[in-house]
Design a binder for these strands. Structure first.
Length: 556
RNA sequence: GCCUCCGUAGCUCAGUGGAUAGAGCAACGGCCUUCUAAUCCGUUGGUCGCAGGUUCGAAUCCUGCCGGGGGCACCA
């Protein structure tokens, strides 16, 4: 008996009772979700459905609760259904029914917790999208960790997700980057507005290695040399970014080049950005004023209309963004998710307006998730303060697991501080080790059980009656609902918080219930059954850690 | 000024309208000849920023105020 099955059963009962009263009130499983009561005395699961529906169908909560509870008590696997307080229904499962969870988890393995709530949805998830003019740094790491985890959680809920990185490889920043790299390669003094940082020097060296005659080219054709430096430097920097992301266990399916939006088609077709302007013009959203092209984004709730071309006739960054959005639509994506830092929250209005102008539903086809920035040891990240820390440095210092776990542990809209000392510490200050240790323990039990000749040849779920066993089983039952909720709300931190609770329940169980008998005591079915439970806990810890991109070592 | 996020235990923070608001850390005190003590158990700790409102029920939703972060470009 799973919580989901209970919810479905209650929905059916409620529908019957409502029909018997001759009124029409729709009931869905979502209305009847059961939750785990905070207090153990309130049973295994509780429903507040009676309180939600009593008023709507003209009765009082306790009376309705009584009717529902009678029917729930008849369900196979339910030991008791009691009324409490204003109309809660407290449900207690019998041990065998609860214990079945252990077998189900082991048998389903990696599939346990996955669902199909988002099946059929084709989602585009854009995140990081850092300029390829320098290495990834602390400011990008939160979105990298969060985006990758959101993607994994959405996939676990059945969605088809494409992780996408938009490369700003056109425009003034790239030119500045090219000048910086060229100067470094030729050993010239850095231009006034050059990018700072030692990485420019090594990119310069790389360019020179690839193009040994750069100095001669520069003497004859400065523009040609600049182009070479920019291109070779860009490709190298992008490659390094990709490597950093892979080291961070963050995977992208598509790296989308901004340049491709500006480039005309091979047979002389208009560039995607020109075509996009035409399309929006046909829809009636484009107008001309002050020698510039504008989009009437105010029609879709933006504060002001936005300009597509600057005075010099060149497209703005926003024009490229609009064209980019259209490519996502044309590539068949329904929902397009953008993961942006709080410093970009002014873009929400114009992005959603573009979705509306493109003919999309701005409620369902576009989602802009805004996250707060990260602090390091209390100091705000700032270029001026010079405390930029590169992702590669952080990975070397703290390790990918600790960093990813910490970044995934907090809601995106919550301010977050990275404390290096804490992340290096192996105490409960640093929960990743707590969770990983629980997993390693399940593996240790497996090894010892094998050595002691205990296997899973018997399964007697009715024997799992210790309080810590009931609680561990309850936690395991919760997992699919946690994944579904994390996917629906795009909040992977729920997985991390759940894992900490699961690890605690496991540790308590481990402390109270032995899988391997003491001394010469005989091996009984209870021990074999507990091995199933141990393995189930290990499986769910593994599944959950995978959703946040953290490894599950067999030993620590 | 407008928009937006945050304000919960000494600290860092969870908390999808439900029951007596939780966890870790910190402080104090316990459990290792027994499957990994990186674990576990106990004690201490709260006007959920303030004031109204909606509701059977509000930390949660609405309004106003106070305090803090971020944003309001023909930059990228």
């Amino acid at each position: 008996m799973t919580p989901q099955e209970l919810a479905t059963a209650i929905a059916r009962i409620l529908t019957d009772l409502i029909a018997a009263r001759g009124v029409e009130v729709p009931v869905t499983d979502a209305d009847t979700q059961v939750e785990r009561p905070k207090s153990r005395e309130h049973g295994d699961w509780a429903s507040n459905a009676a309180m939600k529906f009593a008023k709507r169908i003209g009765t009082n909560p306790r009376e309705l609760a009584t009717e529902i509870a009678q029917r729930i008590a008849e369900i196979d696997g339910v030991a008791a259904a009691d009324i409490a307080g204003p109309g809660f229904i407290n449900i207690t499962l019998d041990a065998a029914s609860a214990g079945e969870t252990a077998r189900r988890v082991v048998e389903q393995g990696e599939a346990y917790g996955r669902g199909d709530a988002l099946a059929g949805q084709k989602i585009n998830l854009e995140f990081v999208s850092a300029n390829p003019t320098g290495p990834l740094h602390l400011g990008h790491t939160r979105w990298a960790a969060l985006g990758d985890s959101i993607s994994r959680v959405l996939r676990a809920a059945g969605a088809e997700v494409t992780n996408e990185y938009y490369i700003n490889d056109a425009g003034a920043q790239m030119n500045k980057f090219g000048r910086s790299v060229l100067a470094a390669a030729l050993g010239e003094p850095a231009p006034e507005d050059a990018y700072p940082g030692a990485y420019i020097q090594s990119l310069g060296a790389h360019v020179l290695a690839q193009q040994p005659d750069l100095a001669e080219i520069a003497a004859q054709d400065r523009d040609r040399a600049l182009e070479l430096a920019q291109e070779i430097g860009y490709q190298q920097q992008l490659a390094e970014i990709k490597e950093s992301l892979e080291r961070f266990n963050v995977h992208f399916d598509v790296f989308f080049s901004e340049r491709s939006l500006h480039a005309p088609g091979e047979n002389g077709e208009k560039s995607p950005i020109d075509a996009a302007v035409d399309r929006l013009r046909e829809q009636g959203h484009v107008f001309e004023a002050d020698d510039a092209i504008w989009v009437r984004t105010t029609d879709f709730g933006d504060d002001k209309d936005r300009v597509f071309t600057r005075g010099n006739g060149i497209y703005t960054y926003f024009a490229a963004d609009a064209a980019y959005y259209l490519t996502k639509k044309d590539r068949g994506f329904g929902e397009k998710i953008y993961l942006l830092g709080a410093d970009h929250h002014g873009y929400i209005g114009r992005l959603t307006a573009i979705a509306g102008a493109a003919g999309d539903d701005i409620e369902t086809d576009i989602t802009v998730l805004i996250g707060q920035l990260v602090n390091l040891n209390g100091a705000r990240l700032s270029k001026r303060a010079g405390n930029i820390v590169e992702l590669d440095d952080l990975l070397e210092w703290l390790g990918s697991d600790a960093l990813r776990y910490w970044l995934a542990r907090y809601p995106a809209d919550s301010p977050l501080a990275l404390d290096g000392e804490k992340l290096r510490s192996r105490t409960n200050d640093n929960p990743v080790f707590y969770v990983q240790y629980a997993h390693a323990r399940t593996c240790a039990v497996d090894r010892n059980a094998a050595a002691a000749g205990i296997d899973r040849s018997a399964f007697a779920p009715e024997l799992l009656t210790h309080q810590t066993e009931t609680e561990l089983l309850g936690k395991l039952q919760e997992y699919p609902g946690i994944v579904a909720g994390a996917a629906e709300l795009r909040e992977p931190h729920r997985i991390a918080r759940y894992l900490e609770e699961l690890a605690a329940a496991f540790h308590r169980w481990y402390d109270n219930c032995r899988v391997i008998p003491l001394g010469d005591a005989p091996v009984e079915d209870l021990h074999r059954t507990r091995l199933w439970l141990n393995d189930a806990a290990g499986q769910v810890l593994r599944n959950g850690l995978d959703l946040i991109g953290v490894s599950a070592p067999e030993r620590l």
